[in-house]
Design a binder for these strands. Structure first.
Lengths: 136, 136
DNA sequence: CGCTAGGGTTAGGGTTGT
DNA sequence: TACAACCCTAACCCTAGC
């Protein structure tokens, strides 16, 4: 009820573009405070400006990389990030959430393995363990 | 721009938590300087650590609001969390609230076991463990 | 100046309405 | 399904106070 959806007028959009020309992208609050635009954009927040600028530019650059990005979203499997994958690590979280064992192949409640770098932990349902082992 | 955004990895977060366990909250620069964490957190500033710690604790007090909202979204196939790369710490935290903030540190390469809620680890001399068990 | 605490802002994923 | 407007919040910035 509080937000009937305010469509952007041509005047507001022009003010936004002018504001970006004057102050640059990412200076949403600065644009809002500028007396040149504050009157026209008085009903808009800095976040609104950012969102509108995004919408303008998304529809403007049709033919670049958008397809790939959306395609990734549809992927059932998630290859996910990469960052710095170097050492061995283990992450175990019990209690309804994640149970994710990665390299080293150990899960929660792992029976004794006998290896030199193994870990034994006793958990109840309300304890979480985040574990990472790193050797230098 | 060069750095669009630096999302925190699970290893970085684990290092931060371990750092707080070892040195206490508010010792951001100290944590950064600690050889145990400086490698993992090399891309972060002391302010980054402070901000991340704030975010972690904010989301921990979160048993009230949008949990249901997001829970609905998690019906389809959701790979949940992500993977890791490296870290040099062991952090055990409770489910509800994250770590306290008291400097309690164990020496490196000195496995201490004993109590019922302890974790036993076998390590070589080049691996350190900082350990605390919290139950809700 | 460096550091931390805390309020403010931005970036980007997500959701809703048409 | 597409798109525009709006929401949520992690990540980042600014600055007072030390």
């Amino acid at each position: 009820m509080g937000a009937p959806k305010q469509k952007w007028t041509a005047e507001e959009e022009a003010a936004l573009k002018a504001g970006v020309l004057k102050h640059g992208t990412g200076k949403w609050r600065t644009i809002l405070m500028d007396p040149d635009f504050s009157a026209v954009l008085s009903l808009r927040s800095n976040v609104d400006l950012k969102d509108k600028w995004r919408n303008i530019n998304v529809t403007a650059i049709w033919g670049s990389r958008q397809k790939a990005k959306l395609a990734l979203k549809r992927s059932p499997l998630t290859p996910k990030h990469e960052e710095n994958g170097k050492a061995l690590s283990v992450v175990v979280q019990s209690n309804e959430e994640v149970v994710d064992a990665k390299p080293l192949a150990m899960a929660s409640g792992t029976p004794r393995n006998g290896g030199p770098k193994d870990l034994l932990a006793r958990l109840d349902g309300s304890t979480q363990i985040i574990l990472a082992v790193y050797s230098s």
